[in-house]
Amino acid sequence: MSASLAPECNEVKEKYDNCFLKWYSEKFLRGTATSDECEPLFKQYEQCLSKALKARGIDSMLKEAREDNRENDAEHMRPKR
């Protein structure tokens, strides 16, 4: 698995990534997913990561970039057919 930006989050990231891969390949790709089953693990991972992003001063840069792109996303990321 890829490493986390924050080494202290590697463990929870790996748990989440494993959950996601299982869900993605067994449910999502088959068209049988009814909900994101890994959300609880994602919340844990997110909690760890958000602290790390804040400590590195990346959070504000990220927020800005995502706000900038929000309206474009709606346009760009629309499936083409």
Partner: peptide
Amino acid sequence: VLSTDTIARHYDADKQ
């Protein structure tokens, strides 16, 4: 590539 983190994820079940 030193690291990769998922920072947001959303599943829309209606649209899959």
